[in-house]
Design a protein around this nucleic acid. Structure first.
Length: 496
RNA sequence: GGCGCUAUGGUGCAAAGGUUAGCACGUGGCCCUUUCAAGGCCAAAAUGCGGGUUCGAUUCCCGCUAGCGCUACCA
């Protein structure tokens, strides 16, 4: 067994990845996709998936906001092996790293007022700035040279970016990257203390790196919006005596107008897709293929995706979240899932809508599976089972106005449905063909096309213009119920 | 403004110098059919622009354009 050195292509077992969301209260689809890619990568190569909550922003540091993220991940089926860790509980570690860097000279204290750098008009105090090259906005202030009397009590700590050299890092998606250090500002590691605070807070750049080192993360898979800041992090790894991980920046998810997906594009949290009645596996399949692919493969069970996933298949171009395609995936799963895998979702849907009967999981289990199987070719979302298909699960349902309009026009229908009720009631051997014969014989006797009766009967027994094939529907509903509904329809037709 | 990334039909992806540029969603049509889906078949629809390199560019290089990202003592 040889150990591969190409850890991005054929990692040898000790892969460690992490998903590090900030607690926003819900799992955004962009975050969900990042989480999914990390998870797929970990599962593919037998690695470890770590969950870390980046809650250093005190404003958003509330427990219920974390719960929303966890709920989203659980629904998505993305589980983790370690964590959740909370960055807010690790601040001392981060501070210690900053102070260590300051002590070694890799960083320095700076007490320039933050406003000095605010906005796009930052200062320029580099020597070559006086040239006509125009203002460069790379922060490199006088404090860099050393200023006495400064400490964490009264100043911030900035990283001293080594000049005259270049910073490289490996990106499994974008390839090797290299930037001139002159382009990298002396970014803040530790903020200056706020009024009343004894010490300042670590910045994101510092915290991620310290935590990723501490958690021995080998592959940082995250949104490509982080790519520009990665050189800073690569620098920090080295200053801290660590080897940078392999980065893998995945493209962003855009709305239909090609701007970054946001609330104004409509639903952006995975929770809303769950609530709408998408199947998690369909959502996963869709998300996995948004920014990743293997040839022309489209419909792939999660196990397949895991076995095929690789960073090499990740695209570099931002992609538009295409809702119609997501729906197509849902229809595919609704159609193709083994019935036993689908049934629990339908049970959940019926429970939510108060239509569920416990016996359907017991003695009428077979009936329930059969009914779901009959219904599913015409469903798109889970709620279809409790709305459109309500009459299969409840005796209280309404006649869809459009269905009446479409199929109950003919005035002869009232009497005919009455006769059909009698004919159906007289069936001794309740099966598909018996229903078929009863109806067609009546149609012939009445001199009407079978279609007229079929369509009208459908409305009568399920209240909808659209339903599974009529005789299958009758079978599943049962003789007694069909007769009863036919008689009710006669009343409904006469009073109208 | 600076730095960077990206660029194949409306959308998501294929084609790792040579294909009639492929697949899927969506769209239109046909078939199937008791409704409506599903399914099957067919169709319209793309290599941003300009230069190179090469016998040959979707593919490699340069420029332009466009989009996006980063440019905080946010994460």
């Amino acid at each position: 067994m040889t150990t591969s050195t190409n850890t991005s292509e054929n990692p040898s077992g000790k892969i460690r990845v992490r998903f590090a969301p900030s607690p926003t209260g819900y799992l955004h689809v962009g975050g969900a996709r990042t989480a999914l890619f990390n998870w797929l990568f970990a599962r593919r190569f037998g690695g470890t998936m770590i969950l870390r909550i980046e809650d250093t922003d005190i404003e958003r540091n509330r427990p219920e906001l974390v719960e929303g993220i966890l709920d989203g991940l659980r629904w998505l089926g993305v589980d983790w092996d370690e964590g959740p860790y909370f960055q807010s509980q690790r601040l001392d570690l981060h501070r210690a790293a900053a102070e260590k860097l300051a002590a070694s000279g890799a960083a320095y204290f700076c007490d320039c007022p933050p406003e000095k750098y605010a906005g796009g008009d930052a200062v320029e105090e580099t020597e070559d700035a006086k040239k006509e090259a125009g203002p460069r906005r790379v922060t490199r202030c006088a404090c860099r040279g050393g200023k006495p009397g400064l400490s964490t009590q009264n100043a911030a700590i900035r990283f001293r970016v080594p000049q005259g050299t270049t910073t490289k890092f490996e990106d499994a998606v974008f390839g090797p990257r290299e930037v001139a250090n002159e382009e990298i500002e002396d970014f803040v590691l530790l903020r200056s203390p706020k009024d009343g605070q004894a010490q300042g807070a670590p910045t994101y750049q510092l915290s991620v790196v310290v935590d990723d080192i501490d958690m021995r993360v080998t592959h940082v898979i995250r949104g490509s919006d982080h790519i520009s800041n990665t050189p800073k992090q690569a620098l920090l790894y080295r200053a801290l005596g660590a080897t940078p991980p392999i980065f893998a920046h995945v493209p962003l998810i855009l709305g239909p107008d090609r701007t970054r997906l946001s609330k104004r594009h409509g639903a952006t949290s995975v929770g809303s897709y769950r609530d709408e009645g998408f199947l998690p596996e369909a959502f996963r399949n869709f998300l996995a293929l948004l920014g990743w692919s293997v040839g022309d493969a489209e419909f792939m069970r999660t196990s397949e995706i895991i076995s095929l996933f690789s960073l090499e298949g990740v695209s570099r171009t931002n992609g538009v979240f295409d809702r119609p395609k997501l729906e197509w995936y849902n229809v595919q799963y609704l159609q193709k899932l083994p019935i036993d895998e689908l049934v629990p979702f339908i049970q959940g849907e019926l429970e939510r809508s108060k239509l569920w009967q416990p016996e359907w999981a017991g003695e009428k289990r077979e009936w329930f599976s059969k009914t779901v199987d009959l219904l599913r070719p015409r469903t798109r979302l889970l709620p279809d089972f409790s709305t459109w298909a309500r009459a299969f699960f409840s005796d209280t349902f309404e006649y869809d106005p459009q269905a009446r309009e479409k199929f109950w026009k003919d005035e002869r229908l009232g009497p005919m449905l009455g006769k059909l009720a009698d004919a159906v009631a007289a069936i001794t051997d309740w099966n598909h063909d018996a229903c078929d014969h009863a109806l067609r014989e009546l149609a012939a006797a009445e001199g009407v096309k079978a279609g007229l009766l079929i369509n009208a009967t459908r409305v009568a027994i399920v209240g909808q213009a659209v339903a599974p094939p009529l005789f299958d529907t009758m079978l599943v509903l049962g003789q007694e119920r069909v007769v009863r509904r036919l008689r009710s329809a006669v009343d409904a037709l006469s009073t109208h």
